[in-house]
Amino acid sequence: MPAIAVDGLTKSYGQTLALDDLSFRVEEGEVFGFLGPNGAGKSTTINVLLDFVRPTAGQVEVLGFDAQTRSREIRSRTGVLPEGYQTYERLTARQHLEFAMESKGVEDDPERLLERVDLVDALDKKAGGYSKGMAQRLMLAMALVGEPELLILDEPSTGLDPNGAREMREIVRQENERGATVFFSSHIMEQVEAVCDRVGILRDGEMVAVDSVEGLRDSVSEGTTLRVTVDRIDDEVLQAVRSLPDVSNAAVEDEQPPTLVVQVEGSKTAVLGELENRGVEVHDFSTAKASLDDVFRSYTTEVQAR
């Protein structure tokens, strides 16, 4: 049974189509990164999972329960870090956590939870005085109450400094090791890259790619970027490099010193060999794997570029 099964989900707000026939699955026990630029429909999807909004069409099941009719069962087994929330300013961190425990009918230790998110100093301080980062830590602690089967985290690193974001990823890893499925959305690649088993990329309400991090890297044509500094470049050399079978693209990046940027899918030595054959002297070269950021950009900007 998948932890999340979305089939043909469509949601429109009047004339605006927020989600267009979206389908994907999140398997039990995996960390799934739900990626997309702002406004792609990530929060709308999460709002449907939690029954905050009702789908226009389509079927959504979470932990085997229908998201509309069995929402209470879903939410009693799920820890949620929502987006665009506000904490209760007159309640302390302890009271927030006690409320979550009471609501879920579970026992947990507020102090231990706050230690995990590094907020234990604010245990008895009212949330009205919290910074955005502190509020985010508190919400993460609330999501962890009662060891839920599924964690749904909507832009969890919002308001966190790099250190906080790293701690958050560490908690995601720990929870996953405990056995929880984690579904989290982000518009920042590196958040996802570091912890996710699989990544789904959403653009304009449609899933444009779902794969492992490695798989996504491989799927983009610019598998490896080769940057070569040479003594001279002419059109003839450029054409020769471009015509190599493994090269998808080659361009002159710089004239002083002459630098060639080549997108290679297979052997890099073929490129260097071809250059030598033509009497071009290679001064220096470097390779770089396509970062997930490049992948993300290629998926989310492709259409506009065309």
Partner: peptide, 14 residues
């Protein structure tokens, strides 16, 4: 308006 209802309804309340 503030979004705090998301906290309430993230928990198992109808």
């Amino acid at each position: 308006e503030s979004g705090s209802i998301k906290i309430l309804l993230s928990l198992p309340h109808s």
